[in-house]
Amino acid sequence: MRINRAVRIGVGAIALALTAATAAACGGGDSKNALDNAKDGKLTIGIKFDQPGLGLRNKDGTYSGFDVEVAKYVAGKLGVKPDGITFKEAPSAQRETLIENGQVDYIAATYSISDKRKEKVDFAGPYYVAGQSLLVRADNTDITGPDSLKGKKVCSVKGSTPAGNIEKNFPDTQLQTNDTYSLCLEGLKGGSWDAVTTDDIILAGYAAQSAGSFKVVGKPFTTENYGIGLKKGDKELRDKVNDAIEAMIADGSWKKAFDETVGASGYQAPTPPTVNRY
């Protein structure tokens, strides 16, 4: 009886091992990369949910903005129709993690290309060049640009390039970071801080959404190249996304998308960037 029991245990262990090995060989659905998903007609794309004109989840559950249109155009070039796209919120501090863990196929979310980020993810683009600026209450006369930030309370988003820039280059400023810009705007409106800082194009959208409450001040004081973030080492995907961005610019879709989204706030479309193929 002891021998038979041992045999049963051994056979059971072998069966479990074979099952696990078979699942691993099949990938269990986890081994697919972005282009595999695209061949199946489906993509999960990271965007912002709280940036008017760029990436916004509307009250009816739809999504709008320039980043959204860029993401959809690229998906189309990869063979995926709009109804095959699942949009996933990509907060600034979580973008690299979402890509590394395979939770998204790529991200188009005001994602500034930087050497530090390129250690973890790859980028296609840029598809837009922005610059950091400042948003203040409409009646504010103290802040006219970055040179007048000393001693001021400034809010930005955790893990964002603008927050890092303030912390590094403006040490006399009291930096407050939140998970979203929406929280920064609430604090600005309520007087918890004096300014919100991020890229000019983002701030223009917020100012337009709350006409009469806020204003953008000063000239941009950085250069931010927006790229599409994707899995590190996936050169085939990066090349295809770069091709798509170039096609969007060349066929007029880039300008049309900008005018219908950010342009609605009165912000004029700049000259499209040159894709650098990072």
Rank of each mutant, 00 (worst) to 15 (best):
M1Y: 13
I3P: 12
I3W: 12
A6I: 12
V7T: 13
V7K: 13
V7L: 15
I9S: 13
V11G: 11
I14R: 12
T22G: 15
A23T: 11
D30Q: 15
S31Y: 10
N33Y: 02
D36N: 08
A38G: 08
K39Y: 07
K39E: 09
D40M: 09
D40K: 10
G46R: 02
I47E: 02
F49M: 13
Q51C: 13
G53C: 07
L54A: 00
G55R: 00
R57V: 07
N58W: 00
K59A: 15
T62V: 01
T62H: 03
Y63D: 00
S64G: 09
F66P: 03
F66Y: 01
D67E: 01
V68H: 01
E69G: 09
V70K: 00
K72L: 05
K72G: 10
G76S: 07
V80W: 04
K81P: 11
K81D: 09
K81E: 08
I85G: 03
T86R: 11
A90V: 00
A90L: 02
P91W: 01
A93C: 12
Q94D: 15
R95A: 06
I99A: 09
N101V: 11
G102Q: 06
G102E: 00
V104W: 05
A108S: 14
Y111D: 15
S114L: 12
D115Y: 05
R117M: 04
K118D: 12
F123K: 09
A124S: 10
V129S: 13
G131D: 06
S133P: 08
V136W: 02
N140L: 08
D142T: 11
D142C: 10
L149T: 01
G151Y: 01
G151L: 01
K153T: 04
V154T: 00
S156E: 01
S156N: 05
K158E: 13
S160W: 03
T161K: 11
A163N: 06
N165Y: 14
I166T: 03
K168C: 08
P171S: 06
P171F: 00
T177W: 02
D179M: 11
T180I: 05
T180Q: 07
Y181E: 14
S182C: 10
S182K: 14
L183T: 14
E186G: 15
G187K: 01
L188Q: 00
G191N: 06
D194A: 00
T198A: 12
D199E: 11
D200T: 10
I201F: 05
I201R: 04
A204Q: 11
Y206F: 07
A207D: 05
Q209N: 14
A211T: 12
A211H: 10
S213K: 15
F214M: 08
F214K: 08
F214D: 08
G218I: 03
T223V: 12
T223C: 09
G227K: 02
G229E: 00
G229T: 02
K231Y: 05
D234W: 03
D234F: 04
D234P: 11
E236G: 12
V241S: 10
N242D: 11
A247F: 09
I249L: 08
G252H: 06
W254F: 06
A257L: 06
D259N: 09
E260V: 06
E260Q: 09
T261I: 03
V262D: 06
G266A: 07
A269M: 05
P270W: 05
P273H: 03
P273C: 01
N276P: 13
R277E: 10
